[in-house]
Design a protein around this nucleic acid. Structure first.
Lengths: 229, 229
DNA sequence: TTGACATCGTGTACTTCCGACACTATCTTA
DNA sequence: TAAGATAGTGTCGGAAGTACACGATGTCAA
């Protein structure tokens, strides 16, 4: 059924930059395009916003359709509207980003045989559209955000060692941190719970496991504290 | 000339939150609507994005058409897309914000007799659409941003006293600052230029004037410095 | 069994930054 | 010339940040 307007309208889409952390690498979730343009190229999951659908519902829906990932915390990143970012016509895209634990979110082959896969942020293939620059913006936002919010926890399993947490921070911030100072700082914040468990199956002295006390953290955020690492 | 699509498309607009500082008050630029809906109500300047027009050009164009303000630095704020934010149909708006010196930007009666005026942020009228919450988001962003970028300078005349600068920070941050500590901190950053001039026509001891060395500041930003007040 | 290897886990001293705090100087106006 | 208004200046104590090294604990292979 056609729809007619007095003036031409740009198309409106959403795209999602989903970060995961695994094995010491920060990864991004991509799908392989089945249709032109950029057929066969890798791209961010996303698609058209329906006219009666909230923007973040659209992002969530496209993500589930294309990758099977559900129940994640999406945050709006930026709206990209360059004139030639899509060769077919004018397309504005509202980009979202999210942090997930890789282990929690096994990606699924999408219904229409679209492939989805994780790529290390330093090892991305050629991307469709302007998606490479969308990922750049998302990475910069992540680096900024990690300084005043403990978002690292979104990326780790429920139980983790302090070394894993430190390694995550080092990966995102792209610099090394001092082990003693990192522990001093992070423990003094008081939202880590020391568990009575240690890691298993490692070929060296096992480290103590910790978990994240979200309630305690949210209290601190409300009081306005500084998470600068 | 009508334009037809296979699926209905939301309308896409831009809206601008322009902050000015004057007389100790932080102000926002509003226009009075000439047409329904919300006829006669105050609203943010903004309007439809043309299909062959970049988003920020659209923001700049609407701002000039409706208020006469040109040549300002606009930054994208957030994209608002609630289903019912416009009673007529689905409208997505990309909001921008800007900081200007009130003295530099005399607003002009727009061509179609739309009225434009500055309102103190604590003294806003009833606003059309969801524009009150857009301003809320912009204020929060401004408060966050002022902590790590010396944006205050965009809001002051080229020559200013340290007291004026401090007052601006106090207004944005909504708290008082210690005079000696503020001066110590801001001068130690090294991008203020002490001028050989003092203010004129004041009924008390005249204060020294300063100006802002933008080149020096940009060097510091590139080196990654901390502007926390 | 024992030695090599890998990672864990811990404390101190120095420096820098932050925050609290009060008085004299200068100019205008009545 | 006195009263009123704002400008301009320094110190000290505490908190937080930074640099830095070694013994403890576990695995594994010879």
């Amino acid at each position: 059924m056609p729809h007619t307007y007095d003036f031409p309208r740009p198309a409106l889409t959403v795209d999602c930059v989903v970060f995961g952390f695994d094995d010491g690498d920060l990864k991004v979730l991509l799908i392989q395009r089945e249709l032109p343009p950029y057929r066969g190229k890798w791209a961010l999951p996303g698609g058209l916003v329906q006219v009666d659908e909230p923007l973040d519902d659209a992002a969530r829906r496209e993500l589930e359709e294309e990758t099977g990932i559900t129940r994640l915390y999406l945050e709006q990143l930026f709206t990209f509207g360059d004139l030639d970012r899509d060769p077919r016509e004018r397309v504005i895209t509202v980009a979202y980003y999210a942090l997930v634990k890789l282990s929690d979110h096994r990606i699924r082959a999408a219904s229409d045989a679209t492939r989805a896969a994780w790529f290390g942020v330093d090892d991305l293939p050629r991307l469709a559209f302007d998606h490479a620059s969308i990922i750049d913006v998302a990475l910069t936002r992540l680096q900024g955000k990690v300084r005043y919010q403990p978002i690292g926890f979104e990326l780790l399993a429920p139980k983790f060692t302090l070394s894993q947490l430190q390694h995550l921070y080092e990966t995102i911030l792209e610099r090394e941190l001092d082990k003693r100072n990192f522990r001093k700082k992070i423990l003094s914040m008081g939202f880590l719970v020391e568990l009575d468990e240690i890691e298993q199956d490692v070929a060296h002295r096992a480290a103590r496991l910790y978990s994240f006390n979200r309630k305690k953290y949210e209290q601190l955020v409300r009081g306005g504290f500084n998470f600068e690492i």
